[in-house]
Simulated assay, not measured.
Amino acid sequence: MGKGLNGTELGAGISQRKDGIYCARYVNRLGKRKYIYDSNLRRIKQLLKQAIKEDKEKASLEYDYTLNQWFDFWFENYKKKEGMSRRYLENISHNYDLYVRDVGDIDITKFKNIDALRIVKKALKVSKTAGETVRHTLTQMMEKAFLNDIVRKNVCKSIDAQPRNKTIKQPLSKRDEKMLLKGCTNQLHKDMIEFNINTGLRISELLGLSFDEVDLDKKFIYIKHQISDYPDDNGNYFFRETKTKNARYVPLNERALIILRRNIKLRQKQLEEGTHKRYYKQHSDISKELIFVNTRGDCFTRAGFHSVLAYIKDRAIEDGYRYDCKNISPHTFRHTFATRCMEAGMTPNTVSTLLGHTSVRMTLHYVHNSIDQFNDDIVLIESI
């Protein structure tokens, strides 16, 4: 039993320092000595009693972590081992440090739903992306904490994701396609867009199309990989598995064949002559395997292709043209391919296979009633 500076009995586990501050100590369920400090004797007795009670209530929990300590452990031992890109991991770490780190030095078992909600709302004031990243991070790390008996429940699970302003997906009309291709000042850009419309490849599959995936004699391409979204730690882009982790065959129509033959011939000539030799030190290791490359002879990035497409699209708009398709993106070409395949009489199962979908149900989201088909079908009303 401790004594105060004036010699009075303070109670079990309580002592008083020379500066007058009271110190209460106890051993928790894990055998670790814990300390509580306060300037008021009555209050420290209450805090000690509450701490011992809370520790007993956590009898089923096997570890003690602060929120920050658990994030660091989770990030290092779980997230990094999932094979995510460096850029993705940096984004998670950056947003946690920005919005959570300052308030994360608390017992993880005392982190409440309302605390998480406040943090997410703070991030949402900056951007929806930041808010969603923080919400997703907190939910994932708390779920692992729950599975490891560090907390009794995932208090972040009930926080709803913020609804996104989803754009309406539409295919290109023939008129839109003609104007888009007309706005191309670079033959390569024109070929990439037209090839994408005629094959329905994902943008990462198009940019990662390599010589060994092409069979011109049998008129098909064998999609077995896609290009990474971000470079690795050495600044190199690399091949990774397709989205569904399955390879697939995509047949080539005559237009796609012409485009592919032209670009393979051009690319082989560039490699033989070393047209981009002065840039070779900056190239990704896979650049020599690619059919479509940028002006430096290196990997064409997603951001680069999006920028090119935006410029081409805006040229027609500046000239007064109004697209039937309101939101044109690289993914629009995939929707266009799917819609035209169905209109040509293909079964949903075949279209699903060509797109590399895991289910026909997903494919149906890619099929729309194009304006061209709608105008043709209207004529049929006379037969009713």
Score class of each variant (00 low, 15 high):
85 S>C: 08
216 L>W: 14
167 T>R: 15
176 D>Q: 02
311 Y>K: 15
363 T>I: 03
307 S>H: 13
9 E>I: 06
67 L>T: 04
228 S>K: 11
221 I>E: 06
99 Y>M: 05
32 K>T: 11
306 H>N: 14
267 R>V: 01
202 R>G: 07
235 G>I: 02
310 A>Y: 10
244 T>S: 15
1 M>D: 07
288 K>N: 15
155 V>N: 03
14 I>V: 09
213 E>Y: 03
246 N>A: 06
7 G>A: 12
4 G>Y: 09
164 R>L: 12
111 F>K: 11
128 K>W: 00
126 V>F: 13
188 L>T: 05
35 Y>V: 00
127 S>C: 12
349 N>W: 10
15 S>T: 11
52 I>W: 01
296 R>T: 03
221 I>R: 11
259 I>M: 11
296 R>D: 05
85 S>T: 10
252 L>N: 13
222 Y>I: 05
376 D>Q: 11
359 S>A: 08
61 L>D: 02
51 A>N: 07
222 Y>D: 04
380 L>P: 00
246 N>H: 14
254 E>T: 14
136 H>W: 01
78 Y>D: 03
379 V>A: 13
7 G>L: 12
65 Y>D: 01
2 G>S: 04
231 P>T: 08
344 A>L: 10
209 L>R: 03
231 P>G: 12
143 E>C: 11
88 Y>K: 06
64 D>N: 13
62 E>V: 02
30 L>S: 09
328 I>Q: 08
150 I>Q: 09
120 V>D: 02
12 A>R: 10
93 S>D: 12
69 Q>W: 03
147 L>F: 03
252 L>F: 01
371 I>F: 07
146 F>H: 13
104 G>F: 02
98 L>Q: 04
140 Q>K: 08
217 D>I: 01
96 Y>K: 10
23 C>K: 12
21 I>R: 09
110 K>I: 05
8 T>H: 11
72 D>E: 15
219 K>Y: 05
199 T>F: 14
211 F>Y: 12
229 D>Y: 10
